[in-house]
Write a protein that binds this DNA or RNA. Sequence first.
DNA 1: TTGTACGCGTTATCAA
DNA 2: TTGATAACGCGTACAA
Lengths: 341, 341
Amino acid sequence: MPGPVTLSDVAREAEVSLATASRAINGSANRTVRPELRERVLAAAERLHYSPDANAQAMARGRTTTIGLIVHDIADPYFSSIAAGVTAAADQLGLVVTLLTTQHQRGREQQFVEVLQSQRARAILIAGGRYDDADGTESLSQALAGYMASGGAVALIGQPLPDVSTVAIGNTSGAIELAQRMHGLGYRRFGVLAGPEGHITARDRRDGFVQTLADLGAPVAPGAIVECAFTRDGGYEGMRDLLSRDLAVDLVFAVNDVMAVGAMAAARDADREVGADVAVAGFDDIVTLRDVNPGLTTVRLPLDELGAKAIELALAGPAAEATVVEVDGEVVVRASTPPRA
Amino acid sequence: MPGPVTLSDVAREAEVSLATASRAINGSANRTVRPELRERVLAAAERLHYSPDANAQAMARGRTTTIGLIVHDIADPYFSSIAAGVTAAADQLGLVVTLLTTQHQRGREQQFVEVLQSQRARAILIAGGRYDDADGTESLSQALAGYMASGGAVALIGQPLPDVSTVAIGNTSGAIELAQRMHGLGYRRFGVLAGPEGHITARDRRDGFVQTLADLGAPVAPGAIVECAFTRDGGYEGMRDLLSRDLAVDLVFAVNDVMAVGAMAAARDADREVGADVAVAGFDDIVTLRDVNPGLTTVRLPLDELGAKAIELALAGPAAEATVVEVDGEVVVRASTPPRA
DNA sequence: TTGTACGCGTTATCAA
DNA sequence: TTGATAACGCGTACAA
């Protein structure tokens, strides 16, 4: 091992003091280093292949250049789209993203907050629906409070939490608009693949949809609301279950796109043609799924923008406390929900 | 600001020395701390909400707990699947992943290697096809060499590089097998959406496919190989272009699934039914795309396993030098390529 | 403008 | 088993 070359080595090589070397290389507040010396230092650093130790810098400066991102599953296109926005925005700010995935295990968010606090991350971003779980929510809240008390910034993406800045997603409003549009297309007998019990995002979407239809005089039959996992397989099984109930539904709303695609597969496997025999709508407008056939009607969310917004919100400064910005979706009608004769 | 609480604070609170506090909390090599004191320290830490400073630990210990992952675009399901595997494996090892995305800008990999070297990351994982660009490859190689010389571990996922451990993907073998299977199904007039010029992965897949067909006596017409971007839109435009040439191709091979889906969309827009009028095959078997209709014939790659394999390879120790493991795909035939009468 | 010296929070070495 | 104390690599008052 050639051993790591330190700033002292560079200083010695350039025949200047450690302080001068430091100033020349990072251009500190006092940007006063004679060009000549500056050149000499930079040349020496280059010659020695000097690589500043970010950990030492962090310690000396008292702050890191890291921002933490916590998601459930990075393979889920919903989260990976958000992550893309986050990394892009972070990159532009000269920040680096550490990615933590809970893999849907409860309690991991809290644990990861502690990890990131140890890392002294500048900010923590948490994306992804939480469950209606008083204990879990409380301990997460406390962990975040501790982190914020120690000077950390936080922004949530999706579900809000008291006293924490949030880029909130208009789940309810999107579901309402979707219900109105589908009703307007002539559908009357609705089914809902509602996601798991207690999942807040799923519940908001389902409730907005169901309530609106009730108001419009086309209430969803109780038996036509089926709980299922928030995943492709959940959608598949939920749809199979729903179809087996023989309720003659003409449109099925899956509370996210991935579930909707699973539902479409289940419909095909049951020899029902999506669009003609049964319409299907989703939520999110996942880019990768825009080419499914028939095209999936859904509520478009600007997922890639959420990341940038969240970073902005978090880094807005401790002055701005607990801002909540709501981002609303937009209904996109495609071939999976043709106008009903 | 309540100010950060340090280990010294904990030591004082517990009325022990700094050293003892350190040992009690992290259980150092000399695991010798009287249980009684140990308890006292842990209690004090809890009481004060002590959070160890990972940067300080890194500096003192001389190593971090970070592993770096460089990809082109985390929103691309190919990369997000790999990333999921990496984070899962890292998590199990108590490591944390910092994610860097090049956004397809050349030269960024090299820059990110330097960033991660500054971070003193334990290991660097680079996924994603490189271009046949001597300069870029050389500077990346050098950056990696420097990092490795300073004690860092590296593993590539996909394209190999001299003197670097790699989880290589069997692009050629997969393409060969695919060509054989498609020929076996009765197809004879092939088209290829070949990806961009100079893209090594794309080239390997194309060459394996084209060469095999030539050997089988069903050579691909030169005009039926169209270059295009390695993306959904690339596949769409390439397919549109190809169909406009009126070559009566009966099967189109897109060098990845995302492109294949774009190609399917283009076929539909041109009123060609995928499967009946023109068959389509892809590569990767992206999970999110398994439900496209008709089902896409492709070469399945165990993307989520690659991450774990790469970490394992990288951390295998400096002893094992530049190991290359090849992971092969498996042809999965679906409805997009029905047997040809 | 440059250099000296101290502090950042931990770990590890060496005595006690 | 425990406690001083010297690193770790860097930034930055403060002094020159």
